[in-house]
């Protein structure tokens, strides 16, 4: 049995846990705790170590989705979680420009861990205050060749599209490497 993993990262409350829950065939194994910090009390719980979901591909292959903790004080977990990943997804809350700088910093950190393909998911695009995806590209300083995709983490079809786009990028990378 082979297992592969994709890491879902992003700032606090960007929707990482919801993203994994939307497609996982098991109840997401989560390490959520009640939030104690006043500044972060925009939701009741947060992921403190990681959460992961599973998608069984066939009898020989399982895909795990690992969500990183959103709070920066748990960032010592990130490098451990990124070990061996196929690629990663950076979740960004489209309605909270105050988190864009942190998203950029997380993105740079993960890029430094491993040169694996990644996509950016502009989450909460169903909300009225959501920024346009192309505006977010500029705000996040993403080069044109990096995919930034509209996403609603609670909508399974939307999550599937993001995962597929990441897998297409991974496939392109494999093909590019094989032609070199």
């Amino acid at each position: 049995m082979q297992t592969v993993k994709i890491v879902v990262t992003g700032p606090f409350n960007s929707g990482k846990s919801a993203f994994i829950q939307s497609v996982s065939e098991i109840d997401v194994v989560s390490t959520e705790r009640k939030i104690t910090s006043e500044a972060e009390k925009i939701k009741n719980t947060t992921t403190v170590a990681m959460d992961f979901g599973r998608i069984t591909v066939d009898e020989d292959l399982v895909l795990y989705l690992f969500g990183t903790p959103g709070q920066r004080r748990f960032d010592f977990m990130w490098e451990i979680l990124s070990e061996g990943m196929l690629g990663f997804i950076v979740m960004v809350d489209s309605t909270r420009p105050e988190t864009f700088r942190e998203a950029r910093s997380i993105l740079e950190t993960f890029r430094a861990y491993a040169p694996t393909p990644y996509v950016v998911a502009a989450n909460k695009q169903d909300l009225e205050d959501a920024w346009d995806v192309e505006d977010m590209r500029i705000a996040l300083r993403l080069p044109d060749n990096v995919k930034i995709l509209p996403c609603v983490a609670t909508d399974k079809e939307s999550v599937k599209k993001v995962l597929l786009e990441l897998l297409f990028s991974i496939l392109e990378e494999v093909e590019k490497n094989s032609s070199q």
Partner: peptide
């Protein structure tokens, strides 16, 4: 490698 990624794509 391609086969593995294609299996993942088909499953998703």
């Amino acid at each position: 490698q391609k086969s593995l990624v294609n299996r993942l794509i088909a499953r998703i």
